[in-house]
Design a protein around this nucleic acid. Structure first.
Length: 526
RNA sequence: GGCCCCAUCGUCUAGCCAGGCCUAGGACACCAGGUUUUCAUCCUGGCGACAGGGGUUCAAAUCCCCUUGGGGUCACCA
């Protein structure tokens, strides 16, 4: 029986959702037995058949936050039961993606643990043992139906507009006949779904009930002897003593199959939580979309999205700290996250807001850290070498500071600095910037006069602050408007229509290149 | 098509379980103004939603039912 205390308290700690009462009642009804000392054990179980999807990343994050907020354990298990598609490379990438997010796991493929191995494929002996056990107990049966028959069956079912499911033909075979045919014929092992209804506690959906007639006798073990996902996931969750299963909503319809398995094993079912899907702009599952460039976490990492921003934003898809605070850190996530607060409806991934948040994190971050994070992008773009960045640290900090307020990602920032590194003669004028400059009718005289004025003042270096004051005074003396000088000047120096203060740009460029670029501007803007 | 899930501004959401405090709050985006040599930042303001219909109730965004709409899933993939 349930000891009311711990679990009930945990659930009722969050009054914002209506699931607390349902959960507590259902726990008792379903006899989700928890023995004293049981603590939360959750897992993230990716299959290494592709990149880590941002939806998967969020699932991992929620599982991790749930465990960490409750002193539980977070395990990582690799679901590599599909040898065709699983690769070690994908696995490495997934692990590094999870680490990038700041997640750590108490048990897993690389850290080991009391339930090793954590690669599903390496647990196949155990899976077969359990399958045999179910077969011996009459809870699974051999099916000799050919693929052709199955295909045909589905065809007729489709034509009759019925549900597509196995009709249970081989379930009626006697054991003697089954044994006999097993000698020479290939077969799969199907789970014998009992009649009745299957019920489970879902912390996101509430009380979920399926009629077992809707659950087909699914394949547990393939004809080549390899067990299938729905079977091994339960075997491993049982063996690893998983208490809560939080995963994407696409698994909701698998759950009755799995719950039935727990019952067949005579084990208490875990508590579930099916997270709302992450949707594309077309409101379809993000992973189903064709364009994959923005769906993998690695895409965001490469582009230079700040880690904390991604964590923050991913959590916002389906969960909110409260009604008013958008920006929160990992500590706040851990101490406030509750699976009961996750919303049921799918969330359209809003790239605009994601970009805003990334920029917000960069703006709030220290200059030193942003400069450090940007450095690799500058190196990759061959703007500077690592050594140069170290040697000219002050200069690097200054130029990064100049763009910090203006960008969304680290790579973004570096791209905006490119004009500083090109040859003066090869500087490209942005059409908009040039148009702005040309609007100033007296641009050439002004630029020439400014050049003459400037030359003696920067012989020993550019003091942006002092120069700025003097420059503005110079403009005022000549009765000019600010844009009359600054538009052409900015274009000549950077070729851009926007950007940092022009005197700052001069100080980064240095006297020689400043004078050269202005002189070139006089020619090019004529 | 069967089954399942879902439904508050264009988008992410708060509010819903324990109905009144909601002429529905915040954020992104958008629009307008201010600051700035430009762009960006920043500040101010604006636009903008309870899918529809029934019920229950003194009272419904909140509870119930139906309709509509959207999604998921129907493999010897996971």
């Amino acid at each position: 029986m349930l000891r009311g205390g711990v679990c009930a308290d945990l659930l009722s700690s969050s009054p914002r959702r209506g699931l607390s009462a349902v959960a507590t009642r259902l726990r008792i009804e379903l006899n989700l037995s928890k023995t004293a000392g049981d603590s939360v054990r959750v897992r993230f179980a990716p299959s290494p058949t592709g990149k880590l999807h941002i939806g998967g990343a969020r699932t991992a994050l929620f599982n991790w936050a749930y465990a960490r907020g409750r002193g539980g354990k977070f395990l990582l298990r690799i679901e590599d039961t599909d040898p065709e598609r699983s690769t070690a490379e994908h696995e490495r990438a997934i692990l590094s993606g999870l680490r990038w997010l700041g997640l750590d796991w108490d048990e897993g493929p690389d850290v080991g643990g009391p339930h090793a191995p954590y690669h599903q494929a390496r647990r196949i002996g155990r899976h077969k043992e359990l399958a045999q056990q179910l077969f011996d107990g009459g809870k699974a049966y051999r099916c000799f139906c050919s693929r052709e028959r199955l295909e045909q069956l589905h065809e007729t079912q489709k034509a009759a507009k019925e549900r597509l499911a196995y009709d249970g033909l081989c379930r009626r075979l006697t054991r003697a006949v089954s044994d006999e045919r097993a000698v020479g014929e290939p077969f799969v092992l199907r789970f014998a779904v009992p009649s009745g209804k299957t019920r489970f506690l879902d912390h996101v959906r509430g009380d979920v009930v399926f009629d077992n007639v809707e659950v087909e006798d699914w394949v547990m073990v393939r004809s080549d002897g390899n067990p299938t996902y729905n079977f091994v996931v339960v075997c491993d969750d049982v063996d690893m003593e998983i208490t809560h299963v939080f995963r994407g909503e696409e698994h909701l319809v698998n759950t009755p199959k799995q719950v039935l398995l727990y019952e067949a094993f005579g084990r208490a079912q875990p508590e579930f939580g099916h997270l709302p899907l992450m949707l594309g702009a077309d409101r379809k599952k993000l992973s189903k979309r064709k364009e994959t460039e923005y769906t993998a976490l690695s895409d965001y990492i490469e582009k230079g999205y700040p880690r904390d921003a991604m964590v923050n934003f991913l959590c916002l898809q389906g969960w909110a700290l409260n009604g008013s605070q958008e920006i929160f850190n990992v500590a706040e996530l851990v101490s406030n996250f509750d699976i009961n607060d996750v919303s049921k409806a799918g969330a359209v991934f809003d790239f605009e807001k994601c970009n805003w948040m990334a920029g917000e994190y960069i703006r709030r971050d220290t200059l030193e850290h942003v400069a450090q994070m940007c450095a690799p992008y500058a190196v990759r773009a061959e703007l500077m070498t690592e050594a140069e960045i170290r040697e000219r640290h002050g200069w690097w900090l200054a130029v990064v500071a100049g763009e910090k307020e203006r960008v969304h990602t680290y790579s973004d920032l570096v791209e905006r600095l490119r004009y500083l590194f090109v040859d003066d003669e090869k500087l490209v004028y942005d059409p908009g910037a040039e148009a702005n400059a040309r609007k100033q009718v007296a641009r050439i005289e002004t630029l020439k006069a400014f050049l003459d004025w400037l030359r003696p003042r920067i012989e020993t270096g550019v003091d942006a602050g002092a120069l700025r004051d003097a420059g503005k005074a110079w403009i005022a003396e000549r009765g000019l408007k600010m844009p009359a000088l600054f538009q052409p000047l900015r274009c000549a120096l950077s070729g851009l229509s926007g950007g940092p203060d022009t005197f700052d740009i001069m100080s980064w460029l240095g006297p020689e290149r400043t004078l050269r670029r202005i002189a070139l501007g006089v020619e090019r803007l004529a």
